[in-house]
């Protein structure tokens, strides 16, 4: 599906979105700090980052809603915002949630937004509105006022608006927000089918599992900067695996794992049935991509834990997920200071 983003993916002109040193300052606050994005054409590009990382501001700059303080933007090979009038008709967007006139029906809202685009054919407007509504499963609610829509229905209507005309690029900010699991699946398959037609999809999301299933490329943003960018595998594999120890003596486990040169921490978000049982996690850095544990033998760690008298209830070597990588990159991890908890 994403094979066309292969060899010449980074050749000039093969980028759907390209920014250099993109910066936005609001007063003294640096919202976006010299961001260099490179979104290959035909890719499904995941744009990740915690709240307040600057994702939405970046998207607003890409679409010409907010002027950049400095830096350059190129969308579909043309400079923005200079070529806004010729670029934006080819771009469908869902920006920071759907927004509609509550007193109009879903179809009337799409009709209204479609009249704003001078490049489309007014004669086909009603047909395109109906098609877009059907595509997101809102055909039955077309005549209903938007104030009676649920959040999920509004989200679908926002997607329908992005699909009113044929697009080369879709910029979707949190497309699954407010959708039930069924809707999330539908959005995922919709994005896949659009990507299969060659549309580049730039999607920001907090749902890391979603991004992991959908995207060929990702960029991770934190505090206004891009901290990692590339193909999904390249970003994920920088942190190959982690060791997970279930024990009633987390302090002992931390000490033993630290002796191996690892940086263990007590998981704060995993609850266990027994209050005394803790989960200790230690990422294993990859020095050699071929060997998942980079020379450290898991069985040696188990032996050392037992020798140190740490009661081990469970021990696993886990493949890292995008979530681990995300947490490591954006500094949301909960690192226990080494050794300070020794009795």
């Amino acid at each position: 599906m994403t094979g066309n983003a292969g060899s010449n993916a980074f050749a000039p002109g093969a980028l759907a979105i390209e920014t250099h040193g993109l910066t936005k300052r609001f007063g003294s606050h640096l919202a976006v700090d010299s961001v260099d994005l490179a979104v290959p054409r035909g890719s499904v590009f995941g744009f990740l980052g915690p709240n307040g990382a600057g994702k939405t501001t970046t998207i607003r700059m890409l679409l010409g809603l907010v002027g950049a303080t400095s830096g350059s933007i190129s969308v579909l090979g043309q400079p923005m915002p200079a070529s806004l009038a010729s670029v934006l008709p080819r771009v469908g967007a869902l920006v920071e949630g759907p927004a509609f006139y509550p007193f109009l029906s879903g179809a009337a809202n799409l009709h209204r937004l479609d009249t704003a685009d001078r490049s489309v054919d007014g004669a086909t407007r009603s047909d395109r509105v109906a098609q877009a509504l059907d595509r997101v499963g809102l055909g039955h609610a077309a005549g209903k006022k938007v104030k009676a829509y649920s959040l999920g229905m509004k989200q679908r209507l926002g997607l329908a608006n992005a699909l009113l005309a044929p697009r080369d690029l879709l910029v979707l900010d949190e497309p699954s927000n407010g959708l039930d699991p069924q809707g999330t699946r539908e959005v995922r398959s919709l994005i896949r089918s659009l990507a299969a037609d060659g549309t580049t999809v730039f999607v920001s999301s907090h749902l890391l599992a979603e991004i992991e299933q959908l995207c060929s490329h990702v960029a991770v943003m934190s505090s206004g900067r891009i901290v990692s960018q590339g193909t999904l595998d390249a970003v994920r594999d920088q942190d190959v695996s982690r060791i997970r120890v279930v024990t009633t003596d987390p302090v002992g486990a931390l000490r033993v794992l630290a002796d191996f040169g690892l940086e263990p921490s007590v998981a704060t978000d995993e609850s266990t049935a027994d209050g005394d049982v803790r989960v200790v996690l230690a990422p294993v850095p990859a020095t050699d991509p071929g060997h998942r544990t980079s020379g450290i033998q898991p069985e040696a760690i188990v032996a050392a834990l037992v020798a140190a008298g740490v009661p081990v209830r469970g021990f696993t070597v886990e493949e890292s997920s995008l979530e681990d990588r995300f947490v490591a990159l954006t500094g949301e991890g909960f690192a226990i200071a080494e050794g300070h908890s020794v009795r």
């Binding site: 010409g64 809603l65 920006v95 937004l113 704003a116």
Partner: peptide, 8 residues
Amino acid sequence: RYLLVAPA
């Protein structure tokens, strides 16, 4: 924002 992105 949607009117301007359309682009109006």
